[in-house]
Structure formats: C-alpha cells, structure tokens
Design a binder for these strands. Structure first.
Lengths: 219, 219
DNA sequence: AGTGGCTGACTGACTAGTCAGTTAGTGAGT
DNA sequence: ACTCACTAACTGACTAGTCAGTCAGCCACT
C-alpha cells in the first residue's frame, strides 16, 4: 500500500505506523537537532537496534518519515475538494498556519520540521522529498486560484505567482512565530503581544484575498 | 575564570574581527549543523583553545557573532536614510532578498543563518539576540511605510501589519529558495527554472507595493 | 529447527570544553 | 642595559561524553 518510499525492506504496516508516530513525538519533545535514534526508540518503547533493522540509517528513517507526513497532509487537503474556491483557499491557508486554538504541540512539531528542512540543502534525500511535497502543495494552491479565476470568483491574476506569495508569506510567518516563541511558555523580550502569523494572515486577507475576490455575488 | 560574559569588550578588536570573519567563512563552508569550534579555528588559522579563551563557550561565540552581523546590517541600512519612502522600501526589500547577481556565498550563508535561527526556540541566548535584530528590521520597514503614508506617497494602511507581511513573505521566499537550491550547484528535481524569491518579489510588487503607492485619486 | 523480529552490549568517530604550560610583550627597579 | 615580575595571547594534549551504526545471539512462532 503506502509503504512506498521504503523500497527493499518491507516494514510491517503496524510497526511502521508505530515508529513513525514515535518519530513525530520525539521530534516534538526534543526538536530535530537533538533527535537521536535512542530517543525515537524510547518514544516507541522499542530498542534503537530495531530502527536500524527496519530503516537502515537515521537518514533513511527520516526520509520515510517525510513521506509519511506527506501522505497525511494530502489526505487532509483532499477532504476539501468540491467546495467553493474562496472557501477552499481560506481553509487551506488556515490549515497551513494553525491558530492558537489548534493542536498544542503542532507548534513544537512545525518547529522541528523547520529544522529538518534547513538540512535539505545538505542532504539530498531530504531535499528531494521536501521539494516534491512542497511543489504539490503549491500546485494545489495555484489550482484553487486558477479555478477561482475561471469561475469568475477571483480577479484575473497569475495563479502560480499568487500561490507563491501566499505560500512564502505563510511559511515566513510560521517561521517567525516559531523563532520568537519560547516553547517553554515564557514570554520573551520586549516585542510581545505580537503574533506574526496572525498579523500576516490579516495582511494577506487585506491585500490578497479581498483583492482577489470579485465584488458582488457572495454569501 | 578568565572568559567573561562581555565578549565584545574583552576581545581585542583586531582578533574579534578576525574570528568573526572566520566564523562567517566556516558557516558558509560547513553550515550550522556541521559547524565545530575546530572548523572555525581552522578557518582563522588559530587554535580551538583560543576561541574558548576569548568567548568561553561555543554558544557565547555564536551570540557574539549574531551581534556582529546585526551591527553590519544596521550600518548598511542606515546608508539609505534621506531617500524617498518608495525608493527606500524597494531598496530595503532588494537588500533582504539578494538576487542571483549578488554575492555568490550569500546564499550559503543565508542558509546557515536559517539553520541557526531554527535553534532559537531551544537556545534562549540565540532567541534574544535574533528577536532583537528582527524587531529592529521590522520597525525600520514600518517606519518607512509610515513615513510614506504621512507624506501621502502611500495609501493609508496599517504600517506595522504591512511591514509584517513584507518581512514574512521575504523571509519565506528566502527559506524556500534555500531549501530547494542545491548548494553544490546541481539543479534538483523536476520543479526547476522557478525561483521563489523572484516570484515572490514580483507578487509583492503587484499586490502590495503597487497597491500602496498612490496614483492620483482612487480608493 | 529454522526464520523473522528484535535486543543488549559494544565500537569507532567525533565533539565541547579543560588545563598545564609556552611565548611575547610591558614596565619597574637597579 | 639588564634582569625580574607580571600578564595577555595562545597552544597541544587530554578528558569526558555523545552518537550512529554493528553484531552475536535470544525468543516466539510455524
């Protein structure tokens, strides 16, 4: 089935799921820089050797993990198919920058994922996997915008370019929140009471979404 | 106990400059994850012990380095003072996302700096320094926009919010370019011939800057 | 009785940080 | 001018610790 990215070794689905979930938890708990095979093993309640047994190297395990994440994201996004472009756009944007109401440790995870991503330029296997994932997401954004333009809901804009802006801005916003936010909960520095993702979402709505949507005929 | 908490004062200017430059080069060459005291020392042609002698720990050395970077950026930005808001805005944006024509290893450095930044949530000393730096940059953006609004060059927008969007978008763009770009020069994956920063700059010009600049009466 | 899933003990490579000691320079007393 | 005392800059060798990856063998099946 979806045990696609691990070519030779057929990891039993049940074990695979368990180890991927353990990797997720370990990333949330320790971040990528302090992620060790031992910590993942501890999180799974299994031995470190088992990880090597199933995935070979740490790098291969993490590539498998990226594939696992991608599958999950795709599944979530596919659920919105069929809705109106504007709705789908807003939902997708919300999905990419979870508000404070969302999953508590999503922040910690997004943080760790960003760490992992910064390693992409140095690790070809990461780079491939990540580039593939992001290209698909960006394409989805562009498709939604294109659909909106065709249906007449949106102004005639360059869909790819607009998608790039949205993607980049949200990405940057997430990065900023994450960089300034202390995961232990304490508020830091002088510039508090300022939430980058919220600000950016508001600005995007003002400049892009509102600007995109044609006057008249909604709701 | 010789190594004190105040590196900038205790380290002789000449040596400080040399070691900071060596740190810069070491970051370009190896990235943050593979940055070791030995590599910095090698780059400086000095011993590893010297780094510890002057800065105490690796963390303190890197905090000093962030301060060094910040000073340099401030100096560069201050040079544009006095120009028209629109010009200053465009120049500053260009400065934040260097085109392909710019410094060759700026890409590699920006990459390493992103790595370092992702460690901010885990290292309070980094977080403080980085938050301080970014707050000042964002404030500069906002000031320029505010000035533009006051002079009547720009539409009446929320300066802080707009600055946040610009900052976040450019940040995300830089991150994306960097994540997909292979530092060794080889083109990767299918999605080539697409430069995120360029796309985003274009989109920002379309949605924000053009939108910002007054062209006679509208609204 | 043999195979796949799994483990504990181990290794080799590597790293931040320490420490005793060297070198070069400065200034004071004679 | 020549020691002597002191100090800052600097180094090589070392410690203590971490980590990915290996390997011989255990256990539960069939």
């Amino acid at each position: 089935m979806s045990a696609d990215e691990t070519p030779d070794q057929s990891v039993p689905d049940e074990v695979h799921e368990e180890l991927m979930a353990a990797t997720y938890r370990a990333l949330c708990a320790h971040g990528y820089a302090d992620l060790t095979m031992q910590r993942i093993a501890d999180e799974a309640g299994k031995s470190k050797s088992l990880l090597h047994y199933h995935y070979g190297t740490k790098q291969e395990l993490l590539v498998a993990f990226l594939g696992y994440l991608f599958d999950r994201f795709e599944a979530r996004v596919a659920a919105t198919e069929g809705d109106a472009p504007e709705t789908r756009l807003r939902v997708l944007l919300d999905k990419m920058v979870p508000g404070a109401d969302d999953d508590r440790d999503y922040d910690r995870f997004g943080l760790a994922l960003n760490e992992l991503r910064t390693q992409a330029p140095y690790v070809e296997a990461y780079r491939e996997q990540i580039a593939r994932n992001e290209a698909v997401i960006r394409r989805r954004l562009a498709d939604i915008i294109r659909e909106g333009v065709e249906k007449g809901d949106f102004r005639e804009v360059d869909a790819d370019r607009t998608a790039s802006l949205l993607f980049a801005a949200l990405d940057g916003a997430r990065l900023q929140r994450v960089a300034v936010t202390d995961p232990s909960g304490t508020e830091t520095a002088s510039q508090s009471a300022f939430d980058a993702p919220t600000e950016v979402r508001a600005a995007l709505d003002e400049f892009v979404v509102e600007n995109l949507v044609r006057e008249g005929g909604d709701e």
